[in-house]
Nucleic acid binder design. Structure first.
Lengths: 214, 214
DNA sequence: CGAACACTTGACGCTCTTCAAACACGGTGG
DNA sequence: CCACCGTGTTTGAAGAGCGTCAAGTGTTCG
């Protein structure tokens, strides 16, 4: 719990995972395809089995807000109303489990299921608060460092691969693509991380990276 | 629903309001006093009867993040875990209703109460997402304009009074107090709003203000 | 009436954006 | 096999916008 804002909170609970595994229908989505759309109804729940998902919403002015990125085990797009306010797309080829809310509620005791849904929503809230925290009063360098660090936390592998492009990172961090690129170069010149191409990277000095993420 | 990001979403539901009214104990808090603290447990629910509340959390580096502002009817600090991650303070003299979660659950059918709590959490999530949206890719002027507009939406009165000071606004909008001050002056010089002192203001040209809030 | 506090205003510098161009990679077709 | 193009990324130079520091102006309260 030293760096709360850098740890990715999984959007799942044991009960929720159990329910989805039991009654969810497995579907595959090709990289780039839409899993659900803005304004579709929220009756279906989606959880990621394998792959990477991004939620976005289009704004009046044509800009695009990134909601968040979701990975193995996460429930995607736990939302407020009857219709989705974000759409979800597969960043990589994905395997997703889909289930109807009503079916989930029947499969389990309704109360237990609602409790799990509440907890998932609370985790999503916590994540959004942390995202806010990761932007507020942080420099471009700190944002990019935090972002890379959050990934390094997910996998212990030597080199790991970012499933999203620079534009997605820029939108997520509220920076321009050029600034993200510059900061990545900067972190490399400091020997803190090493990139192989634009997506594969590894952390060389985790202590420095944590320090730079402030 | 034209300007989703400028509308303050109330954190309440009919069921929740009913429960709190029925079994909540009314308490008064003087301006500046703490309603609950960071790391206190979340067993107690608080709803605002009258007044204005601000939630904040202290960060490692000594900075202070503002969670949100809460007004009449709002449930304050719907949170994730067993302990509060934010503390809540009275911005003005406040009247608050306090109730134990467990008591609420007993007073109502547990299911109905949990549903109401879920909805309140979802609204809090939606608010946080909108807060994020209100910061991302927005200029200082747009942020301040949105902020004032959100208040103008709340009350239809001619002149209305901001319950928080410039520092709170600055923290909320991730700006400095000087920049907030400059933007307020700027909006005044454009004849879009009029200030009487530093807290009382009214909107002169709502259309322009909405345009500036982008 | 004076002191403490909150807010405003000004000047200057740094960071990030903008605009522009170069570069890298992957696929296609000659 | 290599020239060609499209897309995504990097790099550079210039400028705008916001932060910082510092001084000034209210405003509230003893």
């Amino acid at each position: 719990m030293t760096f709360a804002n850098m740890v990715r909170i999984p959007i799942t609970t044991p009960v929720m995972a159990g329910v989805m595994e039991q009654i969810g229908i497995r579907m595959d989505f090709a990289k780039g395809s839409e899993i659900f759309g803005q304004d579709e109804d929220t009756d279906l729940l989606h959880s990621v089995v394998k792959g990477a998902v991004r939620t976005t919403r289009l704004l009046r002015d044509g800009r695009r807000q990134i909601g968040d990125f979701y990975f193995d085990g996460d429930l995607v797009g736990v939302e407020t109303g009857a219709v989705h306010r974000f759409s979800a797309e597969a960043l990589a080829d994905c395997s997703i489990r889909v289930a109807r809310r009503s079916a989930c509620r029947m499969a389990y005791r309704a109360g237990a299921f609602d409790g799990a849904l509440l907890e998932a929503t609370q985790r999503e809230l916590e994540r959004t608060q942390n995202h806010l925290l990761a932007l507020e009063h942080k420099s471009a360098c700190e944002r990019v460092a935090s972002f890379l660090l959050a990934f390094a936390h997910r996998k212990r592998a030597d080199f790991l691969s970012l499933p999203m492009g620079r534009q997605d990172i820029a939108d997520y961090l509220d920076l321009t693509i050029e600034t993200v690129s510059r900061m990545v170069s900067h972190l490399q010149s400091l020997q803190v991380v090493e990139f192989k191409g634009s997506r594969e990277f590894r952390v060389i000095r985790r202590d420095l990276l944590e320090q730079l993420a402030a």
